[in-house]
């Protein structure tokens, strides 16, 4: 499963790579990184079909996570397939209004910083399993 992590903090990459060392090595999760909303959109445009999940920080200079979310929803409306990437929001400002706003804009989840990596890992693996299933289903169905 391909995941794009969007955060303006550069060290997020090193952190994710080490936190998900086993999963990456095992080929279950593949990470790509973008340091701003704009970069994320660029990446998305190039790898739209491969990308399953976007993990985005909300609070970034320039295009914010929420803006990115709405742009994705505009550019990749709901089916026909391929299914648009899910977007999970990550923020240090875990207040209800932001959460509501994110969910209304179509975020699939709303996580708060500091990130609980154990929980995140579980969620990602679950999604990966689902993804594999749908992939297999799609394959078997065709």
């Amino acid at each position: 499963m391909n995941i794009l992590v969007v955060d303006d903090e550069l060290d997020v990459r090193a952190l994710f790579e080490q936190r998900f060392r086993r999963e990456i090595r095992g080929g279950q999760l593949r990470f790509a990184f973008a340091h701003s909303g704009e970069e994320a959109l660029d990446y998305l445009h190039q790898h739209a079909s491969e990308l399953v999940l976007i993990l985005s920080d909300i609070n970034m200079p320039g295009m914010s996570g929420l803006e990115l979310l709405s742009r994705i929803r505009q550019e990749y409306p709901t089916p026909p397939p391929p299914a648009p990437p899910r977007v999970m929001m990550l923020t240090a400002y875990a207040d209800e209004t932001s959460r509501q706003q994110a969910l209304e804009l179509g975020a699939s989840d709303f996580l708060t910083k500091p990130v609980d990596f154990a929980a995140l890992k579980q969620k990602l693996l679950q999604l990966a399993a689902q993804d594999d299933n749908t992939y297999e289903n799609e394959n078997s169905g065709s």
């Binding site: 060290d11 080490q18 936190r19 609070n59 240090a92 500091p114 990596f117």
Partner: peptide, 21 residues
């Protein structure tokens, strides 16, 4: 507080990861 939280998160996370390593 937010500005401090980010680096502190990194500190704890990298410390955690290092323990795992």
């Amino acid at each position: 507080a937010h500005e401090i939280q980010n680096p502190l998160n990194f500190v704890t996370n990298f410390a955690d990861v290092s323990t795992e390593l």
